[in-house]
Nucleic acid binder design. Structure first.
Length: 569
DNA sequence: ACGATTATGAGAGGAACG
DNA sequence: CGTTCCTCTCATAATCGT
């Protein structure tokens, strides 16, 4: 009966904003195409020199805006001098311009688990490995002997495996309780047989370094590096076995997703409410050409994962050939940052492009390069023309995330950015869900919460898993519309039940659905991250926030459905 | 009224350095 | 060890423009 599904617009009580404030003439600096490049006058130049700007920069700015527009000139100068506040600019840029480490194609395509930031080979390979292992709090002697055992060019995971194998051989259960100092949830009395696979413990090193009870102490590096979860498809040494808490084992399976960089304590709290299953943190940068750091709490088997075929391009330049055409050599990015829900303003983009254009010649000056590169990283810009950058278009976002192009067409631009920024990366999720294909050869009954534009269903469909039943909960009407359109376009034969409020799924409704369809095989959902993500500058209030607290509905439904179904079996 | 546009940093972790 | 700098992040709300 909790049909009070209106918590969306509570702040409409103070909307008497009838300020038709068009009175203020804000029509200043509309368009300054006064390209009358007059002679640079010493008075104006010296005026800015007196303010501390370099002379050549002033000259360029005056040529750009015309000598009359002092306001725009000052604006430009202030923008450029923001670069100089970084004292490392001179040191970092100059060796690059002369030393010139060119980007080879192998660097574009090769994905190394140990991270590509380590290509500087000052230390010997052995020393670097040793340093890494010691930083992960392995005893130095154990690390050394492992390096000796595995040879000079062993992968990082091989070394970890070797060390842990040796440690387990000599019976060490002294570091197995990172996970056990959590208070048990009141509903489950699972014995704390959280004998986690030790390889995973060390992969996700320090994952829960500071327990919730004690104050913080040592380095709370909460997230693993590299953020590859149980391992990549290409890694033969990837982890293929883990031990789940007993209460979490078996179907119906659950698969939960949220942002990896949540406020402190949030992942511990979410794990506590999902059978104490340890999250798997994965950055989609290892599966495609755009980053997406996410945590996944699930009870799926992990031993027979297969990646989606064909695998997507791993670099921007491969994924967006039109961008590669214009990509300058001094932009060394091969991966895009996370696709967010909003994009850069056209005004700011114009300012960046003007900064590039201010240098005549082949390539901009090192200072401008650094400025542009920084802005490109911040706003996830790509090259769309000679000396011209632009934000991603919705169609490119769809492809990068693994959706069919034009998956969200029919919506306005703002809505497309929003729902795409909120969605899964299909290849990453499909890799995890792929184990279901063998387990359910005749198809799945899916309970899909916070479905959005149907990322989970698209992943399952691309895996070739029939969707016999999908009960989908999604608040946004436009997202529901997109999902239903996809459902029809792909000629799904199963049953689709769509609703808008997760509160409607009370025990009675769930019992009815289970009675009708026999049960569910998978309960999947990424609960709202609004109050968790660092992108939120206004209301990053944590798991108890207005939207993100809907996580508790996910865990409530998972617990009820699992206990109810398993009670009938 | 409604979609499009725009301005708005904190926070956490890692790297470099002494 | 601490300090400093650097990097990145499934967004919100006021405003604009039809």
């Amino acid at each position: 009966m909790s049909s009070s599904n209106e918590e969306e617009i509570e702040w409409t009580d103070d909307d008497e904003e009838d300020n038709i404030g068009l009175d203020s003439d804000v029509a200043r600096l509309r368009n300054e195409e006064s390209m009358a490049a007059g002679p640079s006058r010493p008075p104006l130049v010296s005026h800015f020199i007196g303010m501390g700007f370099p002379e050549d920069m002033i000259t360029h700015a005056i040529e750009e805006h015309g000598e009359g527009n002092t306001e725009s000139i000052l604006d430009t100068l202030l923008t450029y001098t923001a670069i100089e506040k970084s004292p490392s600019s001179q040191m970092e840029v100059s060796p690059q311009s002369e030393g010139e480490i060119p980007l080879t194609d192998e660097e574009f395509s090769d994905i190394d688990v140990t991270g590509e930031e380590e290509r500087v080979a000052d230390l010997s390979e052995k020393d670097k490995r040793l340093l890494q292992l010691v930083e992960m709090e392995f005893p130095a002697e154990d690390a050394l002997s492992a390096i000796d055992r595995c040879g000079p060019n062993a992968s990082f995971l091989e070394l970890v495996d070797s060390i842990l194998a040796a440690q387990m051989a000599k019976d060490s259960d002294d570091f197995s309780d990172l996970w056990e100092d959590f208070p048990l949830s009141e509903d489950e009395e699972e014995e704390t047989n959280v004998r986690e696979d030790k390889r995973r413990q060390f992969l996700n090193r320090n994952q829960y370094g500071s327990g919730p009870s004690t104050g913080l102490h040592t380095s709370p590096s909460n997230l693993p590096y590299p953020m590859v979860g149980f391992g990549l498809p290409s890694d033969p040494q990837r982890i293929t076995h883990r031990e789940l808490p007993k209460s979490a084992y078996g179907p119906p399976y659950f698969y939960f997703e949220n942002v990896a960089l949540a406020p402190k304590g949030v992942w511990e709290e979410m794990s506590k409410h999902l059978y104490h299953v340890e999250p798997e943190f994965v950055d989609s940068r290892y599966f495609c050409s755009t980053a997406r750091k996410r945590g996944y709490i699930h009870n799926l088997p992990i031993d027979k994962r297969i990646q989606l075929l064909p695998p997507p391009p791993l670099t921007i330049q491969e994924a967006l050939p039109s961008a590669r055409e214009w990509w300058p050599s001094w932009d060394n990015r091969t991966k895009l940052n996370c696709i967010l829900t909003s994009k850069v303003s056209a005004r700011h983009t114009k300012k960046i492009i003007e900064a590039i254009a201010i240098t005549s010649g082949e390539s901009p000056s090192p200072l401008v390069q650094e400025f542009v590169l920084k802005e490109c990283r911040r706003w996830n810009l790509i090259w769309v023309g000679l000396h011209k950058v632009a934000p991603l278009e919705p169609g490119d976002m769809e492809v990068l995330l693994g959706f069919p192009r034009n998956h969200t067409s029919g919506l306005g631009f703002s809505e497309r950015y929003k729902c795409l920024g909120n969605s899964f990366q299909i290849d990453t999720v499909a890799y995890h869900l792929s184990v279901l294909k063998e387990l359910f050869p005749h198809g799945l009954r899916v309970l899909s919460l916070f479905s959005g534009i149907g990322g989970a269903e698209v992943a399952l469909h691309r895996l070739g898993i029939p969707l016999n039943l999908v009960v989908s909960v999604e608040k946004s009407e436009s997202s529901r519309m997109i999902f239903k359109a996809w459902w029809g376009q792909t000629k799904q034969r199963g049953t689709l039940i769509s609703m808008d409020d997760v509160k409607q799924l009370n025990e009675e409704k769930l019992k009815e659905l289970i009675r009708l369809y026999g049960g569910f095989d998978l309960i999947i959902g990424g609960s709202p991250c609004n109050n968790l993500t660092g992108s939120n500058r206004v209301s990053r209030t944590g798991l108890e926030g207005e939207h993100s607290s809907l996580f508790y509905d996910y865990s409530r439904i998972v617990h009820f459905v699992r206990s109810f179904i398993r009670g009938r079996m």
